[in-house]
Design a protein around this nucleic acid. Structure first.
Lengths: 154, 154
DNA sequence: CCTGAAAAATTATTCGC
DNA sequence: GCGAATAATTTTTCAGG
């Protein structure tokens, strides 16, 4: 299940994580192989699902989406069916950037992105508090994003 | 400072977020404009910093990096100089995928990615607990990543 | 500000070695 | 895995509305 990478696969992945748009020729130059094997390796990594896609990254600042809140959520029902319902409902809320089921004092941790506090207030009222079986929430406002979306290091 | 997007910019961004590697011709077709204005708009979005880059996305599962822990951190010193030191030190730890300074009961929230619990134990001991001025930490282990890296919706 | 087509450049693929 | 030749795509440019 886990794909076994060699040193050259790692180089390839790191280059593509840094810039998804370089050509095979340029990638080959940086990795130190010729184009043929690099093209084959990239294809293999794609087909194995190691590379899941190539995406443009957008600036939250330029889009005016700089307000981040982490929300601890407790459910009134944590049986499997209720969890599944919650998981499904969460997918439809674009403001929820991350959602993790947590082992411990609360059930879920959400990362919510909004324009500002007022916008967050709206998201909480309209979207989060109405998720299925939400019993209580606790919000932690971020004052500064020190590290965001740190890419996987391989 | 905030870039004012029109409906077509939004379409362009959403397409590039979904697939960073489509050609201008294909992008133009999907947006419903000809190539010339689409090429100009993409260039403008890049130069304005709205698009910060194009990156390959990797599968944590295929890389064997499926263990996620959220760590609340309290510092013994929260004066500006100490915060700056902490912020800097955090950048050098690849396992820390996110780090946010929090207003409230604790000072920082970290998202840490590791292979498994044993690997997390190592990261905590070797990396996190040795960060400058760390007084206390509280770890919350994720049992399921319900939503991850939700792309910015525009 | 957009269209559409021609021209120029770049890129991926295929081959023998 | 290499390197060159071929084949395909892509970006850029430009006249015109």
């Amino acid at each position: 299940m886990v794909y076994q990478l060699d040193a050259q696969d790692r180089k390839i992945l790191n280059e593509l994580v840094a810039d998804a748009r370089i050509s095979i020729a340029e990638l080959a130059r940086r990795v130190g192989l010729s184009k043929t094997p690099v093209a084959l390796r990239v294809k293999a990594l794609e087909e194995a699902g190691v590379i899941t896609g190539y995406r443009a990254n957008l600036s939250p600042v330029k889009l005016g989406l700089i307000h981040i809140t982490f929300v601890e959520v407790k459910l009134s029902d944590t049986r499997e069916a209720a969890l599944r319902k919650f998981n499904d409902a969460v997918q439809d809320i674009p403001e929820i950037e991350e959602c993790h089921m947590i082992a411990g004092a609360f059930d879920y941790l959400l990362k919510v992105r909004s324009r500002d506090v007022a916008d967050y207030r709206r998201v909480m009222g309209e979207r989060i508090s109405t998720l299925p079986n939400v019993m209580a929430t606790s919000s932690h406002v971020a004052m500064e994003a020190v590290v965001e979306q740190g890419t996987l290091s391989v």
